[in-house]
Amino acid sequence: MFWDGFLVTASVSALSIVGSFLIGVIVAFGAVSRRPFLRKAARGYIGLFRNIPFIVQVFFFYFGLPEIGVYIDAFTTGTMALSIAVGAYAADVLRSGIENVDTGVIEAAEVSGLSRFKIYRRIILPIALRVSLRPLGSVFINLVLTTSILSTITLNELTGNAKIVASDTFRPFEVYFFLLLFYCVLTYLLSLLINLWHRRLNRFMRGAE
């Protein structure tokens, strides 16, 4: 029972991390684009989705959309809503990472003849990622915690399951205490992993110019 909940939480988290990362990359490059339209659209996206409570976004997708004939199941809705909302946070973190990449390094890539796309893909993004990894990690940890909100749209992930177990067993203290511990351990492990990864990626980065 608990294991089922964990699997749901884990798969929603993993899918949304991938989804929000992809959205984040695209929107971040939009936000630093030279084209005013792209810039405005991307910055608008970031501003918009960071300024609406997540639970309201989820309710809109899950309870609002069916009204106009769009039905999506809870799992898909949750994954989509998380990707879209967290994508805005990821984009903002990546944007600042991209803006901090040494312009001299970018110019070196430019004069070597690399195409704009290759410069983004091979130079700017990897450097920005190294810088942004830690804040991006916090964003993704928050994402994992936010999956608990999906219990409100009938998705039986960890928290939803715990609710059921608590009411079946009449032992809310033990059940929720265990749940609390579990989230703690999970996010702690995640942050450890991110730190290790960050250190590994950045071991040679200092003083490189």
Binding site: D102, G104, V105, A108, A109, I123, I127, L201, A208, E209
Partner: peptide, 8 residues
């Protein structure tokens, strides 16, 4: 002047 090597 400032090398501008790719640090990664």
């Amino acid at each position: 002047q400032h090398f501008n090597l790719y640090p990664h």
